[in-house]
Design a protein around this nucleic acid. Structure first.
Length: 267
DNA sequence: GCAAGGGATAATCCACGAGT
DNA sequence: ACTCGTGGATTATCCCTTGC
């Protein structure tokens, strides 16, 4: 049943399963980036998705709700049970049963925003600003540790990335903030990062501790979170960076600063 | 306030060419 | 002959602005 699928078709299917949900545009940016124009790439992506759809390997959610700019929203895609089974055959493992209810818009927005963030980094790699050495998505990027009360728990960043520039190898934990969480919730996560840092687990495992980057929707949100972290004496400011998506690749290329490589920085 | 108009983007149609 | 990729042209749909 998979004989008629191209290598790219399989990549899309696997990628879609890994991300759970992807928009047409995201699939285009992930898998159709070497076309002559982005217009041509978009058309190609739509065609391929229509084909996979006709084979009932993937399905479409309702169009995205919300958003501010004009135009139609991109379709959001997910793998069907049939597609899941096909992936099981591909990987030579039995497919796990998964239910795809219509997810909440907030959850969907967050998942898609994480992918947009990851795409920004991938495209930074493509332009040669840095090289991606490793990418971990949920739940692979979760880190077990003992909390203040000695209970086993997990630090759950949205992404863990290792990048390479000529001078340094940098580790990153990415948190994608949509401006919807209350500041105390954000600070609670920061305290978890701080404690995980103080436990020394990551340093022992990887040799370095990653920089935690909050990717925020706008400058106002950035200033709020920056101020809150600075005002909290028990948090080490140097563990965190708050940044808008536009500047993320510059931050990564600069090893944690926006001004180029940081002398004597983490490596 | 409301309908018409305009901008933006996605999806679709169609003709053409390359590969098999 | 058939399939697939390409890209110009067209259609569909949404949101925002404008004029009343």
């Amino acid at each position: 049943m998979l004989a008629h699928l191209t290598e790219r078709d399989r990549s899309i299917l696997l990628g879609l399963a890994a991300h759970r949900y992807l928009t047409t545009t995201q699939i285009q940016r992930l898998y159709f980036y070497s076309h002559k124009s982005s217009i041509a790439a978009a058309r190609a992506a739509v065609r391929v998705l229509a084909r996979l759809h006709s084979h009932t390997l993937i399905m479409r959610l309702q169009r995205r709700v919300g958003g501010f700019d004009g135009g139609s929203r991109a379709y959001i895609w997910a793998v069907t049970d049939t597609g899941e089974k096909a992936i099981g055959d591909l990987k030579n493992v039995s497919s796990k049963r998964r239910r795809y209810d219509q997810p909440s818009t907030q959850f969907l927005d967050h998942v898609l925003a994480i992918t947009d963030t990851r795409l920004e980094i991938i495209e930074g790699d493509r332009t040669g600003a840095f090289t991606i050495v490793q990418t971990q998505m949920e739940p692979q990027c979760w880190r077990p540790y003992l909390n203040r009360h000695g209970q086993a728990t997990h630090l759950k960043p949205d992404l863990f990335i290792v990048t390479q520039t000529p001078d340094y190898e940098d580790h990153w934990m990415i948190e994608v903030d949509r401006g919807t969480e209350h500041l105390p919730t954000v600070l609670r996560k920061c305290h978890a990062v701080q404690l995980y840092h103080d436990r020394g687990i990551e340093q022992e495992r990887a040799g370095v501790f990653p920089l935690t980057v909050w990717v925020v929707p706008d400058a106002a949100r950035r200033l709020k979170i920056e101020a809150a972290i600075t005002a909290t004496a028990t948090l080490d400011n140097e563990l965190f960076r708050i940044i808008e998506l536009d500047n993320l690749t510059r931050l990564i290329a600069g090893g944690g600063t926006l001004n180029g490589p940081k002398p004597g920085g983490h490596h």
